[in-house]
Amino acid sequence: MDLRDFSNLQLDAMREVGNIGAGNAATALSVMLSRTVDMAVPKAELVSIYELSEYYGDPLTEVAAVFVRSDGDFSCSLIFFQAEEDAQALVDLMLMQQMGMGPEGVPDEMRDSVLTEVGNIILSSFLNAVNVLIGGAHSISVPGVAHDMMGSVLQVVASIFGQSGEHALIVDTTLAVGDLDRNVSGKIVLLPDPGSLEILFGKLQVL
């Protein structure tokens, strides 16, 4: 379906999908860290693919990003990304909580593995909730991770949507870990395949 023909009701439905997915993801992160996790109200927006690389600010910002692909009734891609320092702080929290390890002496490969797994669990929890909502079956790819400029990461999104049109449908929300001296937050971005939206809207009865 043409993304430009979206109704407000459909964008609301996407926001609600984001809300349900992110709620489950926040719970998963909260359990893993034994801390409160705050969740922002999700947004669902149509963004010009040509403006995507600057959509979240300076494209040169260093970010860590975990990417998964889901195929099934509702096919989509998902990204969990954070400022690089937030990602490293999250890894420190996870190592301490799960293994009682301080940040010293942990090899970079292991830190990266922790980050990938946290991202994987957050994104899988998100997808599980969405698929329970619509009664769909899905499979999730192994996660991929990148540490790079935000603009380069967001180009992936632009090229996915660019094949079928000029706009990307972006559903995003921010998770923030509570009770810390510093802010540790990350963004979950849901990128539905344009072809899977009719199925989703049909199941949500907003087609």
Binding site: I49, Y50, L52, S53, P59, L60, D148, M149, M150, G151, S152, V153, L154, Q155, V156, A158, S159
Partner: peptide, 23 residues
Amino acid sequence: VGMADIIVVTSPEMLITLGLGSC
């Protein structure tokens, strides 16, 4: 030079693109 843009300049002007990924 933003995504999908084409820009032509004459010397000594510079051309810059930030954060190329798959592009």
